[in-house]
Simulated assay, not measured.
Amino acid sequence: MARKKKPGDHPNHERWLVSYADFMTLLFAFFVMMYANSQTNKEKATLISHAFREAMTEGTLGPALSRLLNNIPSKPGQVLPSNIAVLPVQNKKPRPVELLPSLHQLNDTLKKEIQSGRLEVRMEGRGLVISLKEATFFPSGGDILEPTTLPMLAVIATEIKRYPNPIRLEGHTDSIPIKTSRFRSNWDLSAARGIAMLELFAERFGVDRGRMAISGFADTAPVASNETDEGRRRNRRVDIVVLNELAAAQEPVQASSK
């Protein structure tokens, strides 16, 4: 119902009637003005002042502030100062998903291989870890994957392709130094095994390269003592780490390879 005018009302009285939301917006605009006046960038402050004046005189506060906050000229043909950068809109990557279903799926599908000690699947604070034992997947001192392991790796690739989470391929060795014509040290060997896994996942199974990264740890992250043969066997491995949302947020931003 329209408000009836009372004697003495200003002719433009209704124009200045505002809702609570309008009042809060005006209050916000006031603080924007205060901020503008505190800046040493006078050209940007001028744009802010112009947007505010336009809002108050033309009743277009919302659009004016929207243009202001996005550094878009408020008038056709208006040119932004050269020192005000217009940032491009970046495509957001899919948000990492919960990994417990993958843990259960892999434990079920690869049950025999896990029980035989050929690989291990576990959940850590950073995400899902699939640990591939050297004795099963690589020859001693080499980075060529054993062809007999391809069916297992196909199961793993199929599962990790279902989700957008980043993947880290980490190579590990025992503490016995290696120096061959191909590998100068355990660092070279551990990194080369991670690269071999990346190439297989990308070329044969179609995993997006943009999701994957390589780490070579040599003997610096053991899971068992290097004082025994059994401990050294456990330490020689490649870990496929599918990062959870918390761990992924700490990673450098990567562009998709697609």
Rank of each mutant, 00 (worst) to 15 (best):
M1R: 10
R3I: 15
G8I: 02
G8W: 01
D9S: 12
D9E: 04
H10R: 05
A21C: 08
F23G: 13
M24W: 07
L26A: 12
F28D: 06
F28R: 03
F30C: 14
M34G: 14
Y35S: 14
N37K: 11
S38M: 15
T40H: 12
K44Y: 14
K44D: 10
K44M: 15
T46Q: 13
T46W: 13
L47Y: 03
E54I: 15
M56Y: 07
L61P: 07
G62L: 14
P63E: 00
L65Y: 06
S66F: 15
L68W: 05
N70W: 08
P73S: 12
Q78D: 04
Q78E: 04
V79N: 03
K92E: 03
K93I: 08
K93S: 11
R95W: 06
R95Y: 07
E98R: 04
L99H: 00
S102M: 08
L110Y: 04
K112C: 15
S116F: 08
E124I: 11
G125D: 01
I130C: 05
I130P: 00
L132V: 08
K133S: 15
P139R: 01
G142T: 00
P147G: 09
M152E: 06
I156N: 00
T158W: 08
E159I: 06
I160P: 00
I160T: 00
K161Y: 04
K161S: 09
I167G: 02
E170D: 06
H172P: 01
T173S: 05
D174G: 10
S175C: 10
S175Y: 03
S175E: 02
R182W: 05
F183Q: 03
N186D: 02
W187L: 14
W187A: 15
A191W: 02
A196S: 05
F201G: 01
E203N: 15
E203Q: 12
R204E: 04
G206M: 05
R209C: 10
I214P: 02
S215I: 12
D219R: 01
T220F: 07
A224T: 01
N226R: 00
E227T: 10
D229H: 06
E230P: 13
R232M: 11
R233N: 10
R233K: 07
R234G: 12
N235A: 07
R236T: 04
V241G: 01
L243K: 00
L243Q: 00
E245M: 09
Q250N: 07
E251T: 03
K258Q: 09
